[in-house]
């Protein structure tokens, strides 16, 4: 049986079991290794992908239930202006260490910046309740999200002026 997924704007075919967790199919069948296999229980956030616009723990999604959904992985966020702004802020804040949690962090925070553009440290931390980082102690990640929020508001204001 062949399954078909709409990922990052294109159809991807795979022959994994319908009950296989989505993150393993992304990694093992489709070579999209930006979604990390860390806890397999939805606690750590390292495997997050967008399913129809919202970040979802891919490890808890049987691949068959992702058919028909619009899937965007971290690889597909590369051209997203909000994600770009966030990733630039992460670099500016010197936030990255081992890096394993960051694709998931970017997934969660991109969504937060889009749905809650006027964010603050407390909101960012609340949004990160399902994203575990073992290296950084979080604060720079939070700073980066707040910096990106400001940058995006400023960019929007400029657009309006222009």
């Amino acid at each position: 049986m062949i399954g078909q997924l709409w990922i990052n704007g294109e159809w991807c075919r795979h022959d994994a079991d319908p009950a296989a967790p989505l993150h393993r199919v992304l990694r093992e069948n489709l070579g999209l290794t930006g979604s990390k296999d860390v806890c397999g229980e939805g606690f750590c956030g390292a495997c997050l992908v967008q399913l129809d616009g919202a970040p979802i723990a891919a490890c808890l999604v049987p691949v068959a239930l992702a058919e028909g959904a619009q899937i965007v992985t971290i690889e597909g966020l590369d051209q997203d202006p909000v994600a770009q702004s966030l990733m630039a802020a992460m670099e500016a804040e010197d936030a990255v260490q081992c890096g394993m949690c960051f694709p998931g962090m970017v997934m969660t925070l991109t969504h937060l910046l889009k749905t809650c553009p006027t964010t603050d440290r407390e909101k960012v931390k609340r949004a990160l309740a399902g994203n575990i980082c073992r290296c950084t102690g979080y604060e720079r990640i939070v700073s980066a999200a707040c910096r990106a929020a400001k940058d995006l508001v400023a960019a929007d204001a400029q657009k309006v002026v222009a």
Partner: peptide, 9 residues
Amino acid sequence: AANPAIRRR
């Protein structure tokens, strides 16, 4: 309950 990604599912 749980965390945002789990609550969505």
